[in-house]
Design a protein around this nucleic acid. Structure first.
Lengths: 204, 204
DNA sequence: GTGTACCGGTACTCGACCGTATCGGTACAC
DNA sequence: GTGTACCGATACGGTCGAGTACCGGTACAC
């Protein structure tokens, strides 16, 4: 009775789970972030996460003292740069590719940002974790693209639109659900880059 | 369902079921929206609203059946168009003035949108009320401006950037707090219009 | 004065969740 | 085999908020 209770496939009891492995931790983190996306930060419960990962509340509380600390840890662990590796040698093409990449994860990340957007106003640690996980890395990557474009002479240094490009990209990504009722997909974002971002920089 | 929102200072009420005057109702609505901005939708309680307006929970529940219905009513009653009356005869100037106007209420509305952003994903009525109160009127006003500009020949009909202007304006407004840690003020928005919006339309 | 209908206050039920405590079971070290 | 340390399950206490019920008070109609 102690092992899993009638779980899906025939995945044999992996048998070495006397301590929380990094893979197991990853399961907890994935579960809590997914539940935040679906139900919002306030509605996520430690009990729910425990149930969906078939662990016990005690296990979670043994590792993390409180719910916000647990969520912050999950965010920090999920940090990764989606724009990494984009460097085509042309700023316009870099931006198009970034838009295409952004479209692929826009639903997930937009939901997470939205769901946590207000919770972070009352928890400093959470705010920092969210920024480090979802915002700063992408911003930095975008700014690198722009800097390379400037260095290549595609855009003159100090062009007034440069400062606003990250806000435009993130902004459109973020508000599309509210305006049009659907998440921004790659197609929409690429067209946005071509119709507005590039022209504002004097590119095409 | 009560009376119209547009009645005068003196109540000429014929046969109201409720003794709640429109002014009193307005107090309830202002209170709940303010508390939502401060604490988030989930954290707002009917008890808190009752306490801050010195009425009783019973009074609130007599008028509105549930918390989401109460909030939706508050949103609908708060509907107003901030861009109304902007018509300078020049699209560029219209957009600058819209940016200036937007900066004045950006903090309040951005907080409200943020605080409700996730709650609306699980309540259809709330979502509709939020859109009707804060989003659609402004979008419509912006689109009118753009249409006038097209009619005057300042921008050619079908210009690809036209479709994205509202999303750009709202998006930048919305994400500035996340990117820069402060709400978008008039100055920031006007510079954004000049640096990015107008160039993308081929204006200056 | 009398009736009516609503108000504000309070007390209540009911359910949900946080965080803790306890207990049996088991992988691993030696 | 024995000990240790952690796992999962479960039960519990405490808090909080939604929504309901009931109360006395009062403005107003007639």
């Amino acid at each position: 009775m102690t092992s899993q209770a009638a779980d899906g496939p025939e995945t044999v009891v992996a048998s070495r789970r006397s301590k929380i492995t990094p893979e197991r931790e990853r399961e907890f983190f994935d579960a809590v972030l997914e539940q935040i996306r679906e139900c919002g930060y306030d509605s996520v419960t430690m009990e729910g996460v425990a149930a969906s990962t078939r662990c016990s509340k005690s296990t979670l509380y043994r590792q993390w003292k409180t719910k916000p600390q647990f969520v912050a840890a999950a965010l920090r662990a999920s940090r990764r740069v989606r724009f990494a590796g984009i460097d085509t040698g042309s700023l316009a093409e870099d931006l198009r590719q970034a838009a295409r990449a952004a479209g692929d994860w826009s639903g997930k990340d937009t939901r997470l940002l939205q769901a946590l957007g207000h919770a972070v106003t009352s928890d400093q640690e959470l705010a920092e974790a969210l920024r480090d996980a979802l915002v700063h890395p992408e911003i930095a990557a975008l700014e690198e693209m722009l800097a390379r474009g400037v260095a290549r002479g595609e855009v003159r240094a100090g062009h007034p639109a440069l400062e606003y490009i990250p806000a435009m990209m993130f902004g459109v990504l973020r508000v599309r659900p509210v305006l049009n009722g659907q998440y921004a997909d790659s197609d929409y974002l690429v067209r946005f880059v071509e119709a507005a971002v590039l022209p504002s920089l004097g590119l095409r």
